[in-house]
Amino acid sequence: MPVVLARIDDRLIHGQVSVGWSRKLQPDRIVLCCDEIAADSWQSRVYATCAPPGTSVSVMDRAATVAAFNDGTSCFGPDERIILLTADPKDMADLRRRGLELSNVNVGGMHYAKGKVEILEYVWLNREDIAGLRYLLSAGTRVTAQAVPGDREIHFDDDYLDTVDGRL
């Protein structure tokens, strides 16, 4: 099943995903990968109601996400177009570490928190975030920041992350 967008976004399913990217990519399913939310059926339902009409939502922890994509008994349809979401780079890196193939990762929304430095209006990073992004790059994943379709893509590489790290 093709992952049409693998996105790091701490708001998970919200307007930019359910309207902006979904209108462009026409996903069949949104996979929200978050251990905490997957363990809470009520939170899972809240996020599931934010999906666009006709798009299924699967809220899964990291282990289940990798299993669903990689084993032969996937609960996803073989031709489903999927948007995969994690809230932070650490989780996306962990999916890659567990064997999920990710050729591209979109950094879509990582908002202000104490100890983070701003690199774009919608992207603030701390050292843990940088470590996750570095892992994805080292695994051969292309990492770019882009909030919505049509925005300019910002390419991340190790030199860029070194510069950001130097500001922390």
Binding site: I13, H14, W42, Q43, V46, C50, A51
Partner: peptide
Amino acid sequence: DDVAGSCATAARLASV
């Protein structure tokens, strides 16, 4: 403003 955006999600999560 939007029934299915981040404002809706935050308000619902806060309501607990």
